[in-house]
Write a protein that binds this DNA or RNA. Structure first.
Lengths: 195, 195
DNA sequence: GTCATTTCTTACCAATTGACAAGTTGCTTC
DNA sequence: GAAGCAACTTGTCAATTGGTAAGAAATGAC
């Protein structure tokens, strides 16, 4: 297993990470390489979530509303750590599916193993916290745009920050992610492109 | 300083917390008692956020949109840990104000001191993580209702889960928290109460 | 107490969004 | 190629929400 990309990712996340041989080895040991084909699930509803450092690919998280319709809760681009927080950290069955929109590559571990590294490699704890904080902050941002931006503004923002998504995800999924119907998104797109 | 309520809160959060004299003392040492009068700020925009274990009271977090209008991002009831995550954990100036809606009581600490406890009292790290995860999960839930619930459903949900808020917060602030205008909330309330 | 200010409600109209249905396009399967 | 299916767009109408203004109610200053 070539662990260099994994360690690079960790170093990029926390510049303070020290590379003593011991810790480096222990850290790498706890991860396994994982590849997902398009359409494969990283997390399934009802099952526990793992912890996936994704270096290539795109993922979509979704759940179902009372009417049984899919609600897309998140899109994950590459170079993000992907996990369903309640399931992973609270040991609950996941309430979300996370599915590969493209072929995905990265490094995978479980809660038990991650805790093992936290215990054995103190510097690594900072990584765990930084990741949790980063994802939390991203979610706060998302909530904020839901409360104070119009559908069109949210669409424009998504195009700016995550244009690739439109290449891989279906518009109906982008619509539910933006909190509107696919019909509405279609209209928004027409008006937006006429500007 | 009577640290019993503080330690009870920690124990309630993580039942595994061991009460060895040493760690107990060190933990308590890092907190100071804090009381806020109604209208006082816990966090101010531009300043760093602290970490407040609030045992009594209600707080409101808010920011401003491009038009300079207040947007309420969160209401904190008692028995929650209150902090602005990006500011506290990433050392950034806060982009939110957090203000007391009522008299508030609890225990306060800074990032440096909290890290000190994490270092000195390993069991306490679990508390820090549990708190972070809990707040993250709460925010995810909030985002989900913004995407797949109507304003009236969100209103009904807030009444059910947080009825007290209506006693302490202004309706215009509740409106922006729900992502609607105060005019709209007024209508929703009329229609809701006529059912 | 009065006055002034803010908060909340209501009314009116405009803009946005949703629900439903029909039509187009593209893809898969046979 | 034809048939079937899913994704996307468009149109129509209804429901929801926003913007503005006016008035009622509550609050605070004096």
């Amino acid at each position: 297993m070539n662990t260099e990309p994994l360690l690079n990712f960790i170093k990029a996340t926390i510049p303070h990470f020290k590379l003593d041989e011991q810790g480096l080895l222990k850290t790498a040991e706890c991860f396994e390489e994982l590849e997902l084909e398009k359409g494969e699930f990283l997390v399934k509803i009802g099952k526990p979530s793992g912890y996936f450092i994704m270096l290539e690919g795109y993922l979509r998280a979704y759940t179902f509303n009372e009417e049984g319709e899919e609600i897309t809760t998140y899109f994950f681009p590459a170079n993000r750590v992907v996990f369903e927080v309640a399931s992973f950290f609270q040991g609950l069955p996941s309430e979300e599916n996370i599915i590969a929109l493209t072929k995905c590559k990265g490094f995978y571990t479980s809660f038990g193993k991650l805790n093992g590294i936290f215990h054995a490699v103190p510097e690594f704890r900072e990584f765990g916290r930084a990741v949790l904080v980063k994802e939390f902050v991203a979610y706060k941002q998302r909530t904020l745009s839901m409360i104070n931006k119009t559908a069109e503004e949210r669409y424009a923002q998504l195009i700016q920050t995550n244009r690739d998504i439109f290449q891989y995800a279906q518009l109906k999924h982008i619509a539910s992610y933006l909190g509107i119907t696919d019909t509405s998104l279609s209209r928004v797109r027409r008006e937006f492109s006429s500007k």
